[in-house]
């Protein structure tokens, strides 16, 4: 019996962490290339609205997810055009992107408020999913969860094992030097921004298609900002981003259970626990980081305009 509760809690932790992992891993790639995109929340919420709308119209969760990704890509392309193409200020553009995304999502989702659909189907593997404990934990999730796990591993491999990833990190470290070497600074940055947008859109679609399968305005509830903070506190390391997201998810689920159990503490305080726990853990992590150098991409947030 208690086994079931533990198992259930662990599964909910994983689902609560998934949108954060998806959004943060995309932002991590963009920031590793030197672009600070503060518009994650906006891309996420538009992804949620578009994902739900497309899924409802077509009846397909897969097409809905594609719609979410497309919405994220669209906003990211706009952001990339401004900050990479026209060398506009990244902070201002990112904040504007969030506001734009929140506004557009209200427009797209206007006709869908109050509608419900079935959550994204969960994977069922004949034998594996029926295994006790391990089965539901590892083999019983929807595709989004696996996509998140795959993305973390893929991004880690890309950044530290592939030549293209090396170029991307180098560009994020010093765009003047890499430009002088003949690397395509703006092309790589634009692609990295697009990747970040696609991931944020997917994270949004997960919220409206699987986590809570309905659309309500502002349903991302600040998760985009949490994802941004995760990237910084995880010192731009994919595995740490995943760990931080799981921690945050865990604290979220625990405080819900604590509230349900009636601990006598104010609910608002308990709601703040996940944020506090995540910040504390990641600060502790970043305090223990290597000496010297900088863990942040050195060119982060700096605009680049080559002379030609």
């Amino acid at each position: 019996m208690s086994f079931d509760i533990v198992q259930m809690v662990l599964v909910t932790v994983l689902t609560a962490a998934t949108p954060l992992i998806l959004a943060a891993i995309g932002e991590l790639v963009a920031e590793r290339a030197g672009v600070l995109n503060l518009g994650v929340e906006g891309m996420m919420v538009l992804g949620a609205a578009m994902g739900f709308a497309v899924a409802t119209q077509t009846g397909s969760t897969l097409l809905g997810a594609c719609g979410g990704v497309g919405a994220g890509l669209l906003l990211a392309a706009l952001f990339g055009l401004l900050t990479v193409g026209l060398a506009a200020n990244q902070v201002a553009s990112g904040l504007a992107l969030t506001i734009l995304g929140l506004g557009l999502s209200g427009l797209v989702g206007a006709g869908y408020v109050g509608m419900k659909r079935d959550p994204a189907p969960h994977l069922h593997l004949p034998v594996l999913s029926d295994l006790p404990v391990v089965g539901p934990l590892l083999f019983g999730h929807d595709a989004f969860v696996y996509a998140a796990a795959f993305l973390v591993a893929g991004v880690w491999w890309f950044l530290w094992r592939s030549r293209a990833g090396l170029s991307l990190r180098a560009i994020g470290d010093d765009h003047t030097a890499t430009h002088a070497l003949g690397l395509k600074v703006r092309k790589v940055r634009f692609l990295a921004v697009l990747f970040g947008g696609a991931c944020a859109g997917l994270a949004g679609a997960y919220l409206s298609l699987a986590y809570t399968p309905f659309w309500s305005p502002g349903m991302t509830a600040g998760r985009g900002w949490i994802a941004l903070a995760l990237v910084v506190f995880a010192s731009w390391q994919p595995v740490r981003v995943a760990a931080g997201a799981l921690l945050f998810g865990g604290a979220t689920v625990l405080q819900l259970h604590a509230q349900a159990a009636g601990l006598g503490l104010p609910g608002q305080l308990l709601s703040a626990v996940p944020y506090l726990a995540t910040i504390l853990a990641l600060v502790a992590l970043s305090l223990g980081r290597r000496q010297g150098g900088s863990s942040a991409p050195a060119a982060l947030g700096r605009v680049f305009a080559p002379s030609r």
Partner: peptide, 16 residues
Amino acid sequence: FSLCENLTVAENIALV
């Protein structure tokens, strides 16, 4: 120098 400070010597050379 057109070197990335936070990359290693080998990584900086590998870039080109």
